[in-house]
Simulated scan of single mutants.
Amino acid sequence: MSDTLKTPKVYLVGAGPGDPELLTVRAERLIKTADVVLYADSLIPPGIVALTRADCERIPTKNLTLETIVPLMIERVRAGKLVLRLHSGDVSLYGAIYEQIQALHGAGIGVEIIPGVGAMQLAAARLTTEWTVPELVQTVILTRTPGITPMPENLADLAAHRATLGLYLSARLVDQAQAELQKHYPPDTLVAVCHRLGWPQERIWLVPLAEMAAVTHREHLTRTTLYVVSPVFGAGATRSQLYHPQHRHLFRP
Rank of each mutant, 00 (worst) to 15 (best):
G108V: 13
H87Y: 06
L142C: 10
Q121L: 13
L82P: 02
A160K: 15
R196P: 02
A79M: 07
E75K: 13
V111G: 03
A210D: 12
P245A: 08
V174D: 02
V140M: 06
E219S: 07
G47N: 15
E57P: 03
P231N: 13
W131D: 12
R203E: 15
R78H: 15
L122V: 13
V25G: 07
V10S: 00
V37C: 04
L158V: 06
L72V: 05
R218W: 14
R26M: 11
P115M: 04
L93H: 05
P115L: 04
D3N: 11
L38I: 05
L206C: 10
M73Y: 00
H184K: 03
L206P: 10
R78N: 15
G236M: 08
Q178D: 09
L209N: 14
E99I: 00
L221Q: 00
R58C: 00
P45D: 11
P146E: 06
L86F: 07
A40W: 01
P208L: 09
N154C: 00
L122D: 05
V70F: 14
V25E: 07
H249A: 10
L12C: 01
T145N: 03
A160G: 13
R223P: 11
H247R: 04
T145E: 09
V229T: 14
G18S: 08
A179V: 14
I204R: 15
A50S: 15
L173E: 15
L165V: 11
P152H: 12
D3Q: 12
L209A: 12
H87Q: 13
V37A: 07
F251H: 09
T128I: 11
A79S: 13
W131Q: 11
W205N: 11
G80W: 07
T61H: 03
Q241K: 11
P8S: 10
A125W: 02
I109L: 07
A177D: 01
R172N: 08
Y243Q: 06
E202Q: 12
L127Q: 13
V215A: 05
C194S: 12
